[in-house]
Design a binder for these strands. Structure first.
Lengths: 121, 121
DNA sequence: CATGATACATACTTTAGGGTAAGTACTTGT
DNA sequence: ACAAGTACTTACCCTAAAGTATGTATCATG
């Protein structure tokens, strides 16, 4: 999690958008290149850290946990660690995370409509 | 529209996410602090450039136009200019743009659930 | 004659987020 | 004794997106 400089216009504006705009609120949670993909992989059931890593080969480990930590902090996923060695950690969608799935479906539906030329963009 | 350096990992990854993930595809279109807000203001009917400017006081003109141009390039809004002086330009949601409204509604619904404590995050 | 309103454009700066590379701790297998 | 697998962490760099500031053309009005 990168340090945030307090007092920059960009942060104030983000704050403004966050309060004024529920869409921005959602995008704060699922924005970031890998978050939707992580959410997608978790939508079919809980996964170990290493399973996610293998499922998304293009992501680096730093980005993977960074996003997992943010998702956890935002209450979208639940981390469970068994105190064994080697470590055994699983990530699961929370209720809030599961509640996002319809949103994701709506987005996917629109994307496929666009790709199928329904809208003649 | 900022110039894009081709061949950077971040661009390759964006490309990857774009192809693999319809959600990322959507967020490419409506990501950016002001785009959802602009879309929202256009959802109630077409607006002049200056009306948008006044409706969203926190946005700078550079950002406003930049996002409007991107939305236009992405086929979400339609720009219409009357050849008069002073200029008279209106922006309207296209069919594709209108098609996004259910997505936006779904996002807003989730956001309000979260804020109402439905999910106990 | 200069000010205001319209709808932009453009050069320059800042910063948040993403990426690279390397290291940590602990155990099992060879 | 050394590599491999687990789940991370940390220091540093690079860039895309956002922001600042200023300029442009045209006409109407005081």
């Amino acid at each position: 999690m990168t340090a945030i400089k307090e007092s920059s216009t960009i942060q104030e504006n983000k704050q403004y958008a966050l309060e004024k705009c529920p869409v921005t609120f959602v995008m704060e949670k699922i924005g970031g290149y890998w978050k939707p993909i992580i959410l997608y992989h978790l939508s079919t059931g809980d996964k170990r850290y290493s399973e996610l890593k293998r499922a998304i080969p293009a992501v680096t480990e730093k980005m993977l946990i960074q996003h997992l930590k943010q998702l956890e902090a935002d209450g979208l996923v639940i981390r469970e660690a068994k105190p064994v060695v080697p470590p055994f950690v699983t990530y699961t969608l929370s209720n809030a995370g599961t509640g996002l799935l319809p949103v994701i479906d709506a987005m996917a539906a629109w994307a496929f409509k666009v790709k199928d030329g329904v809208y003649t963009i």
